[in-house]
Design a protein around this nucleic acid. Sequence first.
DNA 1: CGACATTAAATGTATGTACATAAATTTGCA
DNA 2: TGCAAATTTATGTACATACATTTAATGTCG
Lengths: 163, 163
Amino acid sequence: MRIEDEIKQPTFRDEYQKAIINLVYTTGWLQLRQATAFKTFGLTLPQFNILRILRGQHPLPATVALLIDRMLDKTSNASRIVDRLEEKKLVTRTVCPANRRAVDIRITPAGLELLKTIEDSGLMEKNGTQFLTPDEARQLNVLLDKIRTEDGDGTTLHQPSCE
Amino acid sequence: MRIEDEIKQPTFRDEYQKAIINLVYTTGWLQLRQATAFKTFGLTLPQFNILRILRGQHPLPATVALLIDRMLDKTSNASRIVDRLEEKKLVTRTVCPANRRAVDIRITPAGLELLKTIEDSGLMEKNGTQFLTPDEARQLNVLLDKIRTEDGDGTTLHQPSCE
DNA sequence: CGACATTAAATGTATGTACATAAATTTGCA
DNA sequence: TGCAAATTTATGTACATACATTTAATGTCG
């Protein structure tokens, strides 16, 4: 559906204004879809992403610092997301023997099993981009990269992360 | 900068996976920039959006229901955002005389002045899309609309709203 | 009229982000 | 050696989203 109809705003100042609204709207749309899907498995999107990072390390542990680095969401709070995964017995937390400041975080067998269940469900493939041709997907990548031209202000930038 | 470099992931499964990550990343990038800018004026993005809706109604009042409808963020909580604007004396809240269930919300002169200050600052124009040509902006709109093809599940969808 | 559903807004709970600060440990250098 | 700085994680606060429930007012229909 066209964005004009989607948000019931018949006109925009120009294609630029329309594009920025369309971007934010479409990403919100995607995120809500994904979040709703993950909820049926008792996970939030950030929790799922942390679990995937931990599986990538498995059987080695990860530290909170590593999670933050991989999430690329530099300012956010991995500690509390790990809290929730620990409550659900999907990860374990033990003080790192080599450096008692650090904490070793590991995915449990239950965590691995949950990831497999989710991935086997085919959830991950229904993300909207399947309606693009390969060429259109390439075009989209070019345009998005252009929008992020001139990252000039040096502030730490956000990466909400997702499959 | 290319998304590969931005998130330091050298390869993706395909252009589709890259596109979805690029979309989420780019919108997060945009939102963080905008949120940071608005913070210098003591506002969050949702607060700014509510203020703009109220200005659109001015001098008529709006109800919470109208705000929710205009925000297009159907499930979210306009009530508490109005709380914060009221604390800052940017809006007023009075029980609607015609229907004592409803609440009339109005932007104050201070609120109108703040909006003008923000808009005069030229903040709104620096949103990334200025790096696209008009034709590219049009292309982007077409691609995003395609991604939202098949809104089939009937769930209420999200619209984080912004300029 | 009066029980009951509907509507409008507010409130409660869980989760997450952003940012500042604290607490514990380790490092490094005078 | 000893103390300050750096590192690593956790905690606190403000704000927002998502969703369920509550409260008050209004509508409806027997």
